[in-house]
Write a protein that binds this DNA or RNA. Sequence first.
DNA 1: TCCCCTTTGAAGTGT
DNA 2: ACACTTCAAAGGGGA
Length: 480
Amino acid sequence: MPQLDSGGGGAGGGDDLGAPDELLAFQDEGEEQDDKSRDSAAGPERDLAELKSSLVNESEGAAGDAGVPGAGAGARGEAEALGREHTSQRLFPDKLPESLEDGLKTPECASGMYKDTVYSAFNLLMHYPPPSGAGQHPQPQPSLHNKASQPSHGVPQLSPLYDHFSSPHPTPAPADISQKQVHRPLQTPDLSGFYSLTSGSMGQLPHTVSWFTHPPLMLGSGVPGHPAAIPHPAIVPPSGKQELQPYDRSLKTQAESKAEKEAKKPTIKKPLNAFMLYMKEMRAKVIAECTLKESAAINQILGRRWHALSREEQAKYYELARKERQLHMQLYPGWSARDNYGKKKRRSREKHQESNTDPGSPKKCRARFGLKQQTDWCGPCRRKKKCIRYLPGEGRCPSPVPSDDSALGCPGSPAPQDSPSYLLLPHFPTELLASPAEPAPTSPGLSATLSLPAPGPPQAPHSNLQSTQVQQQESQRQAA
DNA sequence: TCCCCTTTGAAGTGT
DNA sequence: ACACTTCAAAGGGGA
């Protein structure tokens, strides 16, 4: 299976994969607006071109060293340097007020949104600031700000780590901070903190200062090898949306206090994977191109488009994601995804445990019917959760493949390969689909069959994707 | 107000 | 080792 994440020796290969392709994506996704984008970005990018390669090497070196026994100190030192430099250019773009974003949802505006695409930002991700700028205090990086000088309306934001190296933009007036915005990764604390610093509006945002100086949010606090306290966008207040809600001390009991204390530990979010990065970049575009606003529908489109991407295009995102993970690891050496385990879906998990005790739980029924995957079980409706075919009251599953799905609540759901559920959405712009019939070049099944060479996106051997694609291939074969 | 939906991929847990 | 689960983002929609 092709793996981009090659670590040490393969890292160079990965960079080779990612870097040279950066401009291709612009051509791909935003051709019409590319010229402007390049005009404004070409200068700084060229200026930083040399830095890029060296800094890439630095980053890769750090990562590579980390895996070498005895090289820990070196890696850590580089990580520190990296962290300090991150501090100096942590310029998190924030999201515009939604009302404003809505106003930008014209095709013209949409095209403008992609001046800072993942690729241009990727350049910045690789561009650590010049030595002169690597001061102790976060300062605006002129070279970076050149990019930021582009209209920042609704620029799709990549992951916090990514944002953090990508397009800095003028601090939006936080007057209209919604709860949702605050919920953004740290985005809030982090972004605002750095915004304030970079925009010179620190005094206007006293809370951001407290974020910036708040020990729990300091990256370096208590973390060996991180003398520089670095607030990071992946750190979010644990309760996100609740963060801005009035805090009613009168209701606070000791027990609650303890739980609260526990809950108030800053949450470091997972780095975004390739698809998430892609989604983050493309969501606004899809929204601009159609009238859909429901994320579920948008995500289905994006999922489809993701599969339609060429291997090279996907590889860019895989590489970006790999960089994100590397940075994340360097910034939070002790962090594990397990830290966030159960925080979000504790309730669901409890439910699930309940259902597992049921002799007719989906899991057991899958076994009963010889179905290996949830997607198998859920089949046409493709539901992963709350499978509507599971009827707890009956103690066991009905037939795994009923002839009439609608009777079970599936919205007229035929087999996914025939008609994806999003096609059933009202007003779905089918032209948005990227030739669904064409076999995905990245098809795991195909690549496995052909034993494609290693370079390329990592592919899970037992992913749902594979399962679905295999189904598609089989159905196509049968149809033929 | 909270959770679900929906996507893929990474990483965790469970068997 | 493999299967399964959770969480990342997003925001409308439903309870």
